[in-house]
Design a protein around this nucleic acid. Structure first.
Lengths: 156, 156
DNA sequence: TTGCCACTGCGAACTGCTCGCAACACCACC
DNA sequence: GGTGGTGTTGCGAGCAGTTCGCAGTGGCAA
């Protein structure tokens, strides 16, 4: 690739992410590299604990708090984003793949939301309330098609 | 489970709520009554801890876990609902006053959402994905008008 | 009045996350 | 190829919010 172009969006590779880390004075360490490898090798949403397990499969000494600190740092640099699915732990994924989620509270299934569904809602919220919705940070709860069509469970 | 007692809507008074408790075999106890009083005397959103403090102002011995257990029970009976504001504790309020919330992640302000803003979005989600959105359970994050117009904080 | 059992208070435990601290090791500079 | 400053790490304690187990209490039907 050409020389000194600052990446306009989120980094597309581990090396680009590490360059970003270096650019703001950070250092390239083994836990950091392993965490990035875990993030880049799969687009899935994983909790900090899942990611820690993946890193620890290679380097068992890496501590959970190191994972949290690195995720926080990478989020500040725009490499990853986190979102919340229901009541449980936060999940992390690459910033480039940010998208909204619908979470079925019945079967636990998460549906990745095409932006088109949210666009009019986001626009309406801004027009009516001046509120700029961030639809990525929290999953939108409800019932998926399969569970919605099934008879609702008894109230007790 | 046998639907011998279909309550048409959420109870409108403490006594109605207690009748509901009795109808499913429950008992009317002092902590339960005090909790309902706290819930019915103000429409505000309060955390379990806030509600415990209100109850404990009258009956200091009531334990926080009793509050949680009663809230769970009342939720099962359809008397209260809980919702989540950002990362903090869950908040509880009467089921009859359910409404969506927009939560500003910058100043922490919560805006109660007129249903009109959400209607088209809920309809679109159902039409496109078959997904039945429950917009009440989690606050919708973003930036309020004041914070959105202010210059965004530097990325680092 | 009696007795069953729903409910309570209490404290420990759990989950998800953050913090303080001393030791370590990356890397700019020589 | 050293060397030193300092960013990062591992560790463990601690926090908030919530749940659980247990033995004792007391509401209420009979």
């Amino acid at each position: 690739m050409a020389g000194a172009l600052p990446p306009p969006g989120p980094p597309a590779s581990i090396d680009e992410a590490l360059a970003l880390v270096r650019a703001r004075g950070g250092r390239v360490t083994a836990p950091r590299r392993l965490l990035l490898e875990a993030l880049f090798t799969s687009p899935a949403h994983r909790s900090a604990e899942d990611l820690a397990a993946e890193v620890q499969a290679v380097a068992p000494d890496v501590h959970l708090s190191t994972i949290y600190r690195n995720l926080e740092e990478l989020e500040r640099l725009g490499v990853v984003v986190h979102s919340h699915f229901g009541h449980g732990a936060a999940t992390y994924h690459l910033a480039g793949t940010a998208h909204a989620h619908f979470l079925c509270e019945h079967c636990g299934d998460a549906i990745e939301a095409p932006v088109g569904v949210l666009g009019p809602f986001v626009a309406a919220a801004e027009r009516t309330l001046g509120f700029r919705v961030d639809p990525f940070h929290f999953a939108i709860p409800g019932r998926c098609a399969a569970c919605a069509s099934a008879p609702p469970p008894p109230a007790v």
